[in-house]
Amino acid sequence: MEDTLLRIEEISKHFGGVYAVNEVNLNVDHGGIWGLVGPNGSGKSTLFNTILGLHKPDHGDIYFEDKCVTNLAPHQMYDLGLANAFQVPRLFYSMTVLDNMLVAARRQQGDKLFNGLFLRRRWQEQEKGLISEALDILDIVGLDELSFTPAKELSGGQRKLLELGRGLMAKPKLLLLDEPAAGINPVLGKRIFEKLRDLSKNGIAFFIVEHRLELLFEFASWVYVMDKGKLVLAGEPKTITDNPLFYSIYLGDE
């Protein structure tokens, strides 16, 4: 198996005159926790949305398992094995927590028109397994008691947790998490990162944007640093924190 899962080559994306992402190159391998940090507005979310296929890059190419995916639609990226959790949750608010989870399930039998109508046995059989998987994940993110609550009744932090749970439910090869610990209490945040580390040992790669640097640097094995749309640093957390450039980016002195 080729080691590189995601390869980004010279990706640029601008909005009007602003280069949100500027000629970024980076790799993510199978498995492990990969970090992406940088000040507010440095282009992290834009980079994630470009990988997802929500933005078309102005320049450059994206490869997923050595296949060029630059112009694929988001649902095609999902089919290849990508999933994400948005920075600002985008839940299906009038649907229950459990239904939000089930929408995300991979390789569903009953979400096709014909199967949904005529192969009811088949998807009903599958659904039992999916519901029990969903409840296990909801247990991890601490929402299992709220399975039948409409998502609109969740608190801000609970919405972030469901967003994360939905990403996990998609069983991807690569999961993009945009600030999963934002608004989550420190104890649960740490427990979730421990769980992600366990899952990453089974081959899922996590690519995580996080402003809680101490938490990310404890778990990530490799960290990329962006500033003003450019990729400026890359390395193991230890070498990043040792680099004076890293602090000057955040403090803003040139």
């Binding site: 985008r90 839940l91 649907m95 929408v103 995300a104 998609a170």
Partner: peptide
């Protein structure tokens, strides 16, 4: 579930396959 998801948030539904 899929069509309701599309009604609620097209972008999220698309990102979820």
């Amino acid at each position: 579930r899929a069509i309701r998801a599309i009604r609620e948030d097209e972008v999220a539904a698309e990102a979820l396959g």
